[in-house]
Amino acid sequence: MSLGERLFRALTEASSYIILFLVIAIGYSLLLDSLPVFTKFGIWFLFSSEWDPVRQIFGALPAVIGTLETSVLALVMATPVAVGAALFVHEISPAPIMRLFSPIIDALASIPSVIYGLWGLFFLMPLLKEWVMRPLNEALGFIPLFSGSPQGPSILLASVILAIMILPTIASLTLEALKMVPRELVEGALALGATRWEAVRITILPHASESIKASMMLALARALGETMAVTMVIGNTYKLPVSLLEPGVTITSIIANSYTEATSELHISALLALGFILLLISVVVNVISRRLLGRVGHE
């Protein structure tokens, strides 16, 4: 092998090992930085819900629960919308709308998350407060989930924004899955006298369900790690969530919110430990979703 060959190959090889190195280094450094907080509080860091930088007491529970709650709620809201839209576009609408669909999805996916946050703060929040949160609170306020006095920033608002942000992930993968369903199946069902809905339910949904599940996992991973939009609208109140209509906190929002004030070593360690927890959760969810995607033949 010539010198050029060896040099070029070595360069490419080193570059790809940089990626491996980064993955390991990120995990390792976050773990290392979490040690102070774990040695001080032990496993209780995970189960305590107090967060007081002044008294140097840190507990992760509200943030972890808030992250899971907002993400799962977002998934619950986004999935029917995304799947429904994909079904409409693929099964019902005329071709021109179908051609418009993927640019729309791309546009939705390409908006920076901080702009979602800004829009959420100034446009969605007043709307939601007036038309959803207040009525819910008035009608169902006796249920803890809808109790409190809705001000705007809330777990519900954060979840709705997250839901909008993960729509493109679910919709685009669902649409791809729909396209892979053999056309003869649907037409066969229709020819047998099935209605459009029956054809969808009998032939398409079973075929696409694996892909939809995979896309949901991928979307969940996105939602778990989403920072800016959530931080801007959730209100950042460090307490265990009770009502959807009140402010809450997520792992990402407490981290983002503390960036100007974290100075003590323990405080920083607590934030990095939260980061480490988030890293673990999102890597696991991501790997699962890649597995599912691989199984249904994407990539």
């Binding site: 930085d33 778990l224 790690g225 999102s282 890597v283």
Partner: peptide, 23 residues
């Protein structure tokens, strides 16, 4: 290596910030 790349591209962006903050 491809799956490692997938993992890196899937980490939350704030984690990248925390990592560089730390190192």
């Amino acid at each position: 290596l491809k799956s490692i790349t997938e993992i890196l591209s899937g980490i939350p962006s704030i984690i990248a910030g925390l990592f560089v903050f730390s190192v």
